[in-house]
Design a protein around this nucleic acid. Sequence first.
DNA 1: TTTATCTATTGACTTTTTGTCTATAGTGAG
DNA 2: CTCACTATAGACAAAAAGTCAATAGATAAA
Lengths: 125, 125
Amino acid sequence: MPRGQGFGQGRGGGRRKMFFLESCLLVLLHREQGYGYSLMDGLKEYGFRTEEMDISILYRALRELETAGLVVSSWGEDSLGPQRRMYTITPQGESTLTEWIQALRQRRMEIEALEAAYDAVKKNN
Amino acid sequence: MPRGQGFGQGRGGGRRKMFFLESCLLVLLHREQGYGYSLMDGLKEYGFRTEEMDISILYRALRELETAGLVVSSWGEDSLGPQRRMYTITPQGESTLTEWIQALRQRRMEIEALEAAYDAVKKNN
DNA sequence: TTTATCTATTGACTTTTTGTCTATAGTGAG
DNA sequence: CTCACTATAGACAAAAAGTCAATAGATAAA
């Protein structure tokens, strides 16, 4: 009965949007370490409209990633203004990212299948 | 601040998984009318593991589609066993489906962008 | 003809997720 | 010292998705 699509074990949805967000964050951190606002900026690459996004969501995602051991953080060196919490991806984060990319690939192919089915029927009218 | 990714206006997520499910249902109904269990069967085409899925979720989705005017239902002709509620897509359902497919296409391309970014960095190791 | 069983659908309850709003805290300017 | 700005954190409420029955007709079996 349980264990719906994709992954996730919780009830109300079990991952979903956060999954894509966290995957993007891991890809960004795979490239180079970063902190809240720098990552927020990097998200634009993946279609996030960050102007319309509450940054709390990003920090929540980062804390979840850290709790899961996929990233570690430390207070960064002096930067003009308040201290920044710098995030770095862990080896476990790297291998998890590989799995997540696989899952996204799977998801993309499911969407493709639906697109194809729709286009096929559309022709028949 | 509001109006996150994709669509939806509510708080807790605003569409997401249901969106893909309902899109699949509309594609199936675009092809031919159907009822609960026949649609459940059709979902297998799109990667749903229906054995592990509570059918309540499907009926909830169908009722939502009907409330939105995207499908209509009527009690079907005699079929061995209890009555079946037959669903048919409406013209509004057809045009909404076109939009939804567009949105899914967009989502697919976002995933592709992330896959590409990941593969690009991966090479550098 | 009761009883049991299977199919089809519906509704209530509950947990989890997610959006929003507010708070803390350091820094620099006036 | 006060004000404004940046960076992060936490609490709360609303909504979504998962689970668990309940209803109800029809057929088969005892």
